[in-house]
Amino acid sequence: MKSLILLSIIIALSVSSGEAKDLIVGTTYNTRLTWQQKAEYMAIPFKKRVKEVFYNDPAQQIIRGIVARDIDHSDAIATITSGGVGSTYANIRLKSARGSSLNYQIEIYV
């Protein structure tokens, strides 16, 4: 019985460690996609890759949703450093795991 519990814990941990860390803020329902960009960096051994993505709407429309999808399903992290939902601009910081590449699809909805 103990080995069965231990085996199920190991399986659960291995499945959950392979999940992507997508950033989804706001809503995409009943909105319009106004901007998308692919952000990618190649891997460099022993280094973390960081990329800043900036969006500013020239029509001054309010952002209703932001989606940053991790295409490679890596351990990279996406965060909004300023602006975002409720603003007309957004700054998104992407940071890869050490020695890994960075590959994100970023979408802004108004």
Score class of each variant (00 low, 15 high):
residue 2 K to F: 13
residue 2 K to L: 13
residue 2 K to M: 13
residue 4 L to W: 15
residue 5 I to M: 14
residue 5 I to W: 12
residue 5 I to D: 15
residue 6 L to F: 07
residue 6 L to A: 13
residue 7 L to G: 07
residue 8 S to P: 05
residue 8 S to K: 13
residue 9 I to R: 08
residue 9 I to H: 05
residue 10 I to S: 14
residue 11 I to Y: 07
residue 11 I to W: 05
residue 17 S to W: 12
residue 18 G to Y: 00
residue 19 E to L: 00
residue 20 A to L: 04
residue 22 D to G: 04
residue 24 I to H: 15
residue 24 I to L: 13
residue 26 G to H: 07
residue 26 G to P: 03
residue 26 G to N: 06
residue 27 T to M: 12
residue 28 T to D: 14
residue 28 T to R: 09
residue 28 T to H: 02
residue 29 Y to A: 14
residue 31 T to S: 09
residue 32 R to Q: 15
residue 32 R to D: 10
residue 32 R to K: 15
residue 33 L to F: 03
residue 34 T to R: 13
residue 35 W to L: 03
residue 35 W to I: 04
residue 35 W to A: 06
residue 35 W to S: 12
residue 36 Q to S: 08
residue 36 Q to Y: 14
residue 37 Q to L: 00
residue 37 Q to K: 13
residue 37 Q to Y: 00
residue 40 E to K: 15
residue 41 Y to F: 08
residue 41 Y to R: 10
residue 41 Y to M: 05
residue 41 Y to E: 03
residue 42 M to W: 11
residue 42 M to P: 07
residue 44 I to N: 14
residue 45 P to A: 02
residue 46 F to Q: 15
residue 48 K to N: 13
residue 48 K to W: 00
residue 49 R to A: 10
residue 50 V to L: 10
residue 51 K to D: 00
residue 51 K to I: 01
residue 52 E to T: 10
residue 54 F to L: 11
residue 54 F to T: 09
residue 55 Y to V: 08
residue 55 Y to I: 06
residue 56 N to A: 06
residue 57 D to F: 01
residue 57 D to S: 14
residue 57 D to G: 07
residue 58 P to Q: 15
residue 59 A to L: 15
residue 60 Q to F: 02
residue 60 Q to L: 10
residue 61 Q to N: 14
residue 62 I to K: 15
residue 62 I to M: 14
residue 66 I to V: 14
residue 67 V to Q: 12
residue 68 A to P: 04
residue 68 A to I: 06
residue 69 R to Q: 02
residue 70 D to S: 00
residue 71 I to Y: 06
residue 72 D to L: 06
residue 72 D to A: 04
residue 73 H to T: 01
residue 73 H to N: 11
residue 73 H to G: 02
residue 74 S to Y: 03
residue 74 S to F: 00
residue 77 I to S: 00
residue 78 A to R: 01
residue 78 A to M: 01
residue 79 T to Q: 06
residue 79 T to C: 05
residue 80 I to M: 04
residue 80 I to V: 14
residue 81 T to P: 11
residue 81 T to K: 09
residue 81 T to M: 06
residue 82 S to C: 08
residue 83 G to K: 09
residue 84 G to N: 09
residue 86 G to T: 08
residue 89 Y to G: 08
residue 90 A to H: 03
residue 90 A to C: 13
residue 92 I to M: 09
residue 93 R to F: 03
residue 93 R to K: 10
residue 95 K to T: 06
residue 95 K to H: 03
residue 97 A to K: 02
residue 98 R to S: 01
residue 98 R to T: 02
residue 99 G to I: 04
residue 99 G to M: 11
residue 99 G to D: 10
residue 100 S to K: 09
residue 100 S to C: 10
residue 101 S to C: 05
residue 102 L to N: 05
residue 103 N to F: 01
residue 104 Y to Q: 04
residue 105 Q to G: 06
residue 105 Q to P: 01
residue 108 I to R: 10
residue 109 Y to N: 12
